[in-house]
């Protein structure tokens, strides 16, 4: 029997910006088809960690291995939804979504048809011809989501994808993501500030310590049954137990991050 290598394996990676060590040696494995959420105080190094997994940042030490292959350069198997606005401002929402397919040499007519379909799935069918500056922050995020998902990447790196959305839309988008993930079994590395969201969606919730030299200090398996409903699962008694347990650890770090900043 051959063991399938993890989709993403960060082994002992540390990342520095000049003299500033953002991430101290950290190990994180995401199995194929596994949904891992990262939570941690602001500024601890979550985005930095995702950038390393995407191949945008080379770690100062340690290795990044993607599906058994040592990563050098960009991670071509991953789709990355950035925390900041990353849409091309000179393209309409439709063209921004279609470009991911056009780059893969899909004929333009087909790319546009599928892009329309994806815009409808993220609830933006009526906004296809808008330019990014004509969309709200949450709408731009959803266009970004469609832009990444249309390429059907094996690995999803998502940096606070639902950050600027209202609670209702967050739930809908979370549900969409869960359905998609259940159907396609992608490996997901999902950064969020919202612990409830992390527990509702993920198989594992990983906690990062406050920076500098942040590292992973907690790894909680979420044993809630699947398939889950992103909403109903929050009423589960086990959900509250987990939340209580993880929040106890996370709160200390958040306070530490806040204290060191003050």
């Amino acid at each position: 029997m051959t063991v399938t290598p993890p989709a993403v394996a960060l082994d002992g990676i540390s990342i520095a910006y000049g003299d500033f060590v953002a991430v101290a040696p950290t190990m994180l494995h995401v199995a194929e088809g596994e949904f891992v959420a990262i939570v941690g105080p602001t500024g601890c190094g979550k985005s930095t960690l995702l950038n390393a997994a995407a191949g945008l940042l080379a770690p100062a030490a340690g290795t990044v291995t993607i599906r058994g292959r040592r990563l050098a350069g960009l991670n071509g198997e991953a789709g990355y939804l950035f925390q900041q606005d990353a849409l091309m401002p000179w393209k309409t929402a439709l063209d921004n979504v279609a470009i991911g397919l056009e780059v893969a040499d899909v004929p333009r007519a087909e790319a546009l048809a599928r892009a329309r379909d994806w815009l409808a799935r993220v609830g933006l069918a009526a906004f296809a011809d808008r330019y990014p500056h004509q969309l709200s922050g949450g709408q731009r995020k959803r266009v970004g989501l469609a832009q990444v998902l249309i390429r059907n990447p094996k690995i999803l790196l998502m940096d606070e994808p639902f950050g600027p959305l209202d609670a209702q839309t967050r739930l809908i988008m979370g549900g969409l993501l869960l359905d998609l993930w259940a159907a396609e079994r992608k490996a997901v590395l999902f950064v969020t500030h919202d612990l409830e969201e992390a527990i509702a969606l993920a198989d594992r919730v990983v906690i990062m310590s406050s920076g500098p030299s942040a590292t992973i200090i907690g790894d909680h398996a979420i044993d809630l049954p699947r398939p889950r409903d992103a909403m109903d699962v929050r009423l589960d008694a086990r959900f509250h137990e987990l939340h209580h347990e993880i929040w106890g650890q996370l709160r200390g770090e958040v306070l530490k991050a806040y204290g060191s900043a003050a």
């Binding site: 990355y80 091309m88 000179w90 780059v103 390429r151």
Partner: peptide, 29 residues
Amino acid sequence: SPVVLANARMLGMNERRLFRHVYWPSALS
């Protein structure tokens, strides 16, 4: 914008496509 550029590269653009879809429109504007 470095983020737009990084995103375009993550979407699989090679140098030629980056030129056409990112650098060129930005320079033109």
